[in-house]
Design a protein around this nucleic acid. Sequence first.
DNA 1: ATTTTTTGCAAAGCATGCTTGACATTTTTT
DNA 2: AAAAAATGTCAAGCATGCTTTGCAAAAAAT
Lengths: 76, 76
Amino acid sequence: MKTKIRELRKQRKLSQEELAEAVGTTRQTITSIEVGKYTASLPLAYKIARYFGLTIEEVFDFSDLEDGLWNNSNRN
Amino acid sequence: MKTKIRELRKQRKLSQEELAEAVGTTRQTITSIEVGKYTASLPLAYKIARYFGLTIEEVFDFSDLEDGLWNNSNRN
DNA sequence: ATTTTTTGCAAAGCATGCTTGACATTTTTT
DNA sequence: AAAAAATGTCAAGCATGCTTTGCAAAAAAT
């Protein structure tokens, strides 16, 4: 999952540590998410987005999962 | 975590099973999320929201985690 | 150039999300 | 009323998210 976290963080000149504290998590968690090691949970994604004054969709890039969802083969 | 999933699902007269298939998960997962047994992952939350043509923030209610985030004590 | 801060990474362990299968109860259909 | 479909739940097990400690390398500050 791609994110704009690093970009937003640098714009505001925050360290990973500062962001982590602000959203109630650890530095390693922020690193892992920025680096794509794993995907944030919904609550954490929300806190991060909200911290930057943005929506989840504005911070996280979901283009990797938009497949096969909209081919209409599952509609009634 | 509260959600509007059941509400949206019933509006469109879908069963849990149908929604589950549409978003690539199982009936039990939908039940558990609707009933509040646990919180959806970010990817699943996205797929569900997108299925209904809404944003994550429109489907999931985060009012339970907006605490202590905006008291300015963590700003530079 | 040396020191300090920031970042990447790894392993162990715990917490949470999800699947599968199965059964009981409720709701809808006939 | 009887049959069928939909929902809630439980347990076991696997997958993923997160924390903690600790170390190494890169970047920023002095």
